[in-house]
Amino acid sequence: MTQGRLRNVISQKIHDVSLNQAQLDRLINLQATKPKYKSNKILYFFASFIAIAFTSIIIHQSVQPTISIEQAIGNEVANNHIKLKPLEVTSTQLNIVRSYFKELDFLPITSKNINFDTQKLLGGRYCSIQGITAAQLRLKNDKTGNIQSFYQTSYDPVIFKGIPNISAGEQPITVHSKGVSVDIWVEKGLLFAVTKD
């Protein structure tokens, strides 16, 4: 029985273990046939970025206080009213102003909630309410000099759910934003909003 030092015997034993030629050939061939490594760092970066952005949006939405559709319309109308952007068409005749709005899918009309005996039409411009294209008419009270912004757009029952319909006997809802009072209502299949300084 041959004896030897532990280190030498173990070293020799491990050295005696070796791949045969067929095994070597398979492993060499594996290297030749495998597709080249492609870095996924850019993919990982964009995936991480999207995940972080998505998470941020979810968190932002979850902590953002929800406001009613009436208040959202009121905020938008008040903002536009304060800016009083230049009119795109100027006329005191509703027919002339109406003929300017060719891109709308409705005809701008009057409302029984607006007293055209005291309010004089100045003109109009395109705008939008909650992402829906709208007509903005500008009115002026000759006695007081007050300017009113009068909005109308197509009524979407999903987006504008809950807005009172004065054709059904309901009263306009009034919201307040940035010191401006805004009446909002539905009438004749359109959504209306008007400022009251």
């Binding site: 029985m1 041959t2 004896q3 030897g4 030092r5 532990l6 280190r7 015997v9 173990i10 020799q12 034993k13």
Partner: peptide, 16 residues
Amino acid sequence: DLEDLIIDEDMVEKIL
């Protein structure tokens, strides 16, 4: 110290 251990060569597999 470990290197100086003397073993039988046919025991190496059992040892490992």
